[in-house]
Design a protein around this nucleic acid. Sequence first.
DNA 1: ACCTGAACACCGTTCAAGT
DNA 2: ACCTGAACACCGTTCAAGT
Lengths: 186, 186
Amino acid sequence: MTRPRGRPPQGQGMARDDILTAALALLDEGEGQGLTMRALATRLGVTPMSLYHHVGDHAALLQALSERVYAQVLEGIDDLADAKARIRALLTRYHQAVSRHPQLTMAIFDTPEAYAGITCQITQRLTSLLAQITPEPTLWCDILVDHAHGSSLALASARGDPAQLRALQHRQQQALDVLLSQFPKG
Amino acid sequence: MTRPRGRPPQGQGMARDDILTAALALLDEGEGQGLTMRALATRLGVTPMSLYHHVGDHAALLQALSERVYAQVLEGIDDLADAKARIRALLTRYHQAVSRHPQLTMAIFDTPEAYAGITCQITQRLTSLLAQITPEPTLWCDILVDHAHGSSLALASARGDPAQLRALQHRQQQALDVLLSQFPKG
DNA sequence: ACCTGAACACCGTTCAAGT
DNA sequence: ACCTGAACACCGTTCAAGT
């Protein structure tokens, strides 16, 4: 089930992208701590140490995963007309990203290295957008981001129950609408 | 450092309460996963298996911890005058409990058994209080509880930096005020 | 460069044995 | 009843060795 010992022939080595895909699948399927270096290695038909050449250690793996998942959140935001539309799009995408991979939020939050990278960009962008529509941009950034994270925890603990999961997603969309309706030109 | 083998003399056995106190201390001090059965046993001068007689397994330990920490949240709520004051007190206490032990939130959320017990009581009570002041009680319960959990994650990742921690706590108090000001008779 | 096997220092938990 | 030591099946990670 594992590979021969030496350097693999040209183009036969593992692709970093395939590792991340498998890791994400493992995270989504698994109860609690499904994503371990050893389980990931087994799934890829490889020795655990082999992973360290491609993704670094466990923290680096989670950081790479979070970058992949949250990359789309900020993309194309500037094409939208006004600040409020941009804010709504950014938060909607953030919620979507988070609700597609509920376990990722948990995993990221007990891996400070992984946490720092992503959310910094998102919160900075969000804060500067909020500054255009409210005198309290950092306060509202906290409220909105904390809400996203909290609701992602709720999704994580509703794993395995698709009906409850959809109900939660619907309520969270409503919650986002309510929060955003605080601002003028709603 | 460990104890003699047989049953300890009368009154010399470990007290369940002391175990929980030590566990909470370990959780608060530690980076990430500081609270392990083995570390807890070492701190108490005892073999890991000894703990299983008093607190059960790791999930049961976390459940006991959450019950101890969140027990005060609902206490004496009924002494307050109106629904809005009760809601504010309940949420303030919940935030306080959560911010005193930031790592506990994380630990609880990847231990479904521990999660179920506590928050059910709190959300039920909160929902019924909210029903008295808004036509959308479950929606607002989600918003407020998710916010509490999300901000607790923020606190957990600000561990070790007391200045940042106090700043966060202050902003979270403001955030709670803003959210509650949505309702009439503010 | 990229993979392996062996090893180290951890986990939670079970089980049988001691008093 | 309450504690122990030994053991099992896991972790992440390092290191030296192979090609």
